[in-house]
Design a binder for these strands. Structure first.
Ligand SMILES: NC(=O)c1ccc[n+]([C@@H]2O[C@H](COP(=O)([O-])OP(=O)(O)OC[C@H]3O[C@@H](n4cnc5c(N)ncnc54)[C@H](O)[C@@H]3O)[C@@H](O)[C@H]2O)c1
Ligand SMILES: NC(=O)c1ccc[n+]([C@@H]2O[C@H](COP(=O)([O-])OP(=O)(O)OC[C@H]3O[C@@H](n4cnc5c(N)ncnc54)[C@H](O)[C@@H]3O)[C@@H](O)[C@H]2O)c1
Lengths: 211, 211
DNA sequence: GTTCAATTGTGAATTTTTGCACATAGTAGG
DNA sequence: CCTACTATGTGCAAAAATTCACAATTGAAC
């Protein structure tokens, strides 16, 4: 196949999913893995794994499977996690703090280069990760200077749209929003809204007594 | 239609999505909303909104729209957020702490009744929300006693599967896992794995320079 | 070197989800 | 009561995503 023509959106999500167990396998010295085993580790159908990968090339060897290291490298190349991304975070409350201090992001190439808060009591505080909290008024200037491409929002919901607009004006290309509102962005800026309670409500629906 | 026969999974997710702006509208005294406006607020197609709702009944008035209060009540009934759910959380690190202290959960009926950590330095600490951190060794006992139905995992990844097994043995019906591994559960226990870096990788893929 | 078992890559069938388009029904104004 | 307008509910078609099923290819054993 090998054509970037029409890649299903879910395929991209699954590629990210595949990379987690692949990293573990690599660490544990496993050299080769079959689509059946990988699918099993990720809870998907083996044909799905093969098809997802086939959109981007022929990475496997028939009769053998996929070379773990090669496959991981390919997936990282596809997802552009073989480079570093410049991030900023707005809103250093409980959640914002947990996000900035978390090492998973850095390990995958997502680097927080700036942290903003509007609370004067928080401004100038130095975070454990070494960043100094900057006032929200500096967002535009710093995002431009540091060439920040992705903005993360962890402010209360009623501030989220304002912050979004500010970030977009400052030139970010994408936004990951943790406030429980659907923020809107013009064409050309991508937004992912993450809402934990949606996940919970999904669970609740499925385990509740039937209507 | 009105048959619970075959509800698309995405429909359930969108119902949760619809409820957010509906709550705002209710607070702002808006009495009625059309599928077009609601769809716009949620970034989906209006026919989708109508179809999603139609799976569960006829909640609207032709020529008028949907009564905001009624619709919200119906959605909450469908998603079983018109009742309270008993939750526990395992792993009170940065993220666990943010989750347990967050009020959104409580507001939607998700109540943390117990918080566990294996670190002896954390055990017995009293959280801002009033809970006392209990040792992980008490999980089974307390989950049973408090009739906890949903377990939230915020431990490091290599502990997540162990904790999952423990929670399932203790009788929880569903698990929300924030550790970046795909934890597995037998039939009968539902698992949602939330991985922020997957969201980021999705964004990165779409804004990167094409391959 | 021939056979056998394993596993990929993929066309085609199937299933799921979305969106159009319109008949249907309610409201308001005269 | 009739007309004009609005917005729902839904049959049906289109699109998207998943899964099946098998030919093609590889490695290994004998
Ligand atoms: N804590 C969680 O587990 C959790 C879970 C899901 C969603 N969320 C959402 O994430 C957001 C943050 O949650 P939290 O628990 O950290 O809340 P929080 O109240 O602890 O933190 C919010 C922070 O944002 C800052 N802020 C407010 N307006 C700002 C602005 N305009 N610019 C910059 N900073 C601003 C505040 O000063 C504060 O430090 C909320 O919208 C919350 O609903 C949190
Ligand atoms: N912090 C974030 O923003 C973030 C984002 C995404 C994912 N995560 C994931 O969430 C998890 C928690 O993140 P964190 O930043 O809070 O980490 P953390 O290290 O601050 O906290 C982990 C906590 O779990 C406890 N713990 C370890 N093993 C346990 C066990 N068997 N039983 C009970 N408690 C146990 C530890 O004592 C610690 O308090 C990690 O898997 C992390 O990768 C965190």
């Amino acid at each position: 196949m090998n054509k970037t023509s029409k890649i299903p959106v879910p395929t991209i999500e699954r590629l990210a999913l595949y990379s987690r167990p692949l990293e573990n396998l690599l660490d544990n010295g496993v050299l080769v893995i079959s689509s059946v085993k990988l699918a099993d580790l990720c809870g998907v159908n083996p044909a799905q794994v093969r098809k997802d990968l086939a959109y981007f090339g022929e990475f496997g060897t028939r009769g053998v499977g996929y070379d773990v290291q090669d496959l991981l490298k390919e997936i990282k190349r596809i997802l552009a996690t073989d480079r570093e991304w410049a991030l900023c975070i707005v809103g250093i409350g409980n959640l914002g703090n947990a996000l900035v201090e978390n090492e998973n992001f850095r390990k995958r190439g997502y680097k927080f280069l700036a942290a903003f808060d509007s609370d004067p009591r928080k401004v100038n505080r130095v975070l454990y990760c070494g960043l100094t909290i900057k006032p929200a008024s500096k967002i535009t200037q710093l995002v431009r200077e540091l060439h920040i491409e992705i903005g993360v929002i962890a402010t209360p919901p009623f501030e989220a749209q304002k912050v979004t607009n500010l970030l977009i004006d400052s030139g970010v290309k994408a936004i990951l929003n943790f406030a429980p509102v659907q923020v809107r962005a013009p064409e050309g800026c991508l937004v992912e809204n993450v809402d934990f309670t949606v996940r919970l409500e999904n669970l609740a629906y499925h385990i509740r007594e039937p209507l």
